[in-house]
Structure formats: C-alpha cells, structure tokens
Design a protein around this nucleic acid. Structure first.
Length: 315
DNA sequence: TCATCTCCAGATGT
DNA sequence: GACATCTGGAGATG
C-alpha cells in the first residue's frame, strides 16, 4: 500500500478525496465483496444521508425513553468506520489504586477511552483554540481547562455528530469513545446523570465492531408511605450490533442504569467493540470531569495492526 | 473538619 | 456462564 489515502488523517476521513484515489487501487477502502461503487465519494454522501433506518421508540416502561436505530450506520460503511477509528485514535486506560482490606490494589479501568469536545460555555475557533462561546475571546488559564486542554472533535466524528443532531433534534458538544478489546472489558451499571449535563439529558450511543449486550434496569425506588407503589419494571437486554445507535433521553438517565457486562467462553474473544457517545455538557466543570476520567494522566495506547492489539504508544 | 453520599470494579453468591 | 448482590476505598458534597 503506497497510495495517498493510507496517510489520510482522522480529519480527512470523510472529506472528498483527490479524484484519482479510487477504491479500485486502495486496499484500505475495500470492504468485503461490496460493490464497485466509488467508496470515497459515497462515504460523504452516505454520511449526510444517515441514518439508514428510522428509529424505533422504546418507551413502554416507567421513566424509559429510548430511540433505537438498527442500524444507523449502514452495513457497507460500518466496518470501515470501525477499523478507521480503531486505527487512528489514541486511547487511554485510566488507572488508579484502591485499598481493599488494607491491601493496595491496582485498578485498570476495564476499557480504553478517549474524549473530545468542550462544554457549552466555550467553543473552538478555526485554529482549534478554546474561545468564549458568547464573546469569542480566548479562554485563558481557566482551572477547568488547564489540566487537560480541550480538544476539538475530529472531522469524521464531528460529521457523525452533525448527522445525529439532525436525526434526533438534540444538540451535542462532547464525544466520548470507548474501546472494549474483549469480553473481559466492561462497564458496570451506572447512569450518565452527571449534574453538568443538566436535567433530562439526551445521549446518543453508537456501537461499532463486535456485538455486545447492553443491559438496562430501573434504579431501586425507595419505599414511600405517602405514594402508591411504583409500576413494575423489567430489565432490558439489547444485543447492540455494529452500526446501531441508541438514543437515551427524557427521564431515562435519572431513573435507569445501564451496563456492558463482561463475557466469557466463546464470546470472550469478539474482535473488539467501539462505543461512541455524544452528549451536551453545560458548564466548564463537565469538561474537566470528562477529560479527567476518560483521558487521565496514564499511558497512551494505539492500535497495532500487525499484532492486532492495543500497544503502549511511544512518541 | 466531619459525616454522609455516590461511584464503580472486583469478589462472591445463586 | 450469566448476572445479581455485596464490599469498601476514594472523592464529592454540604
């Protein structure tokens, strides 16, 4: 492979390529046995025409409001986007120590993470500098931005963000990316109900790569003598496939928990899954929080195509 | 400064 | 193997 597209940057991914770089001489862009159409031209066109299906509402339980696109990114594009993102993004694996019964244990957060974006009080100017959203003046030395300078959302992810805004009517300024390398990577039950997202936050969650189960259950409800007992709710299991998108909105985050549980046995080595979430942080504290917990100060990892695993990145 | 709450990975139980 | 529940240190909160 010696063509120019091999050197394409993350930002250039969905940009129209030079006219002469065609799929027929570009191994990177060949996808299985798909048709002979010019992928380079169609990628941008297709991205603008996403989603490829209409969303199905799942709102038949208390406090639950989901919109499920199966898929959002079409079959012929999904693999290519997965491989491209895994290859190009730098990932982090947040590490910390805890003491258990007096014994210090190293915890490696069981997934690779990264994050882009800045909260609603700021934006990026043309050069990528953080400026005040209303005055346009450069934001300097804010404690919330000093530890981890906010980074603009890369072009291809930002195009997906725009598409998602158009499809959902929601606004997003943050993009979190997780990579679950195998069935032993996971995330425990939690809600994305951080205060800095405001009340009733909408979060769009994309799946690429391996199919993984997405579990949801209602938060426990404290008994209340003055109120009638809450309606029964039943847990949900969605086997999220590559290209799928699930929008969680309304009272969902305030009342439901979700997780990606570990998987063993024949499902353990699944080839890896990328999760992209778009959110909207309202205040500067949200920016600091997201960079702190998704970038951190630990080592940097990058996908090694030869070894087919994440490797420590040495600059 | 202290008490309480929340978070979440890992251990344990079914 | 799947998954619910328990545990407990750390950081946030008031």
């Amino acid at each position: 492979m010696s063509d120019s597209t091999k050197k394409r940057t993350l930002d250039a991914f969905f940009r129209p390529p030079p006219k002469k770089a065609r799929v027929s001489d570009n191994n990177d862009l060949k996808i299985g046995d798909s048709s002979t159409i010019d992928k380079d031209q169609s990628i941008e066109t297709e991205l603008k025409s996403l989603p490829s299906t209409i969303g199905r509402a799942i709102n038949d339980q208390a406090d639950l409001d989901l919109l499920y696109f199966e898929p959002y990114i079409p079959k012929y594009l999904e693999r290519e986007v997965f491989q491209f993102l895994r290859k190009e993004l730098f990932f982090y694996r947040v590490e910390y120590k805890i003491k258990r019964g007096g014994i210090e244990t190293d915890i490696r957060t069981p997934r690779y993470t990264t994050v882009f974006g800045v909260d609603e009080t700021s934006r990026f100017d043309e050069t990528g500098e953080v400026v005040d959203a209303s005055t346009g003046r450069k934001v300097e030395k804010d404690k919330n931005y000093s530890k981890y300078p906010p980074r603009p959302i890369p072009k291809c992810l930002d195009d997906l963000r725009s598409s998602t805004e158009a499809a959902t009517g929601c606004k997003f300024n943050f993009c979190l990316v997780n990579y679950y390398a195998s069935g032993s990577d996971s995330i425990s039950y939690h809600s994305d109900d951080e205060r800095f997202l405001g009340s009733l936050p909408a979060i769009a969650s994309f799946s690429l790569g391996a199919k993984r189960d997405f579990l949801m259950k209602h938060k426990p409800v404290a008994p209340n003598d003055n109120a009638p007992p809450p309606a029964e709710t039943k847990p949900i299991k969605l086997p999220l496939a590559s290209g799928d998108m699930i929008l969680m909105r309304g009272r969902t985050q305030a009342n439901w928990l979700h997780s990606i549980p570990k998987r063993t046995g024949k499902n353990a080595e699944d080839g890896g899954r990328i999760n992209i979430t778009f959110r909207r942080a309202m205040v500067k504290g949200g920016t600091e929080n997201y960079y702190n917990y998704n970038v951190g100060s630990g080592p940097v990892y990058k996908w090694d195509e030869t070894r087919r695993e994440m490797r420590l990145w040495k600059s």
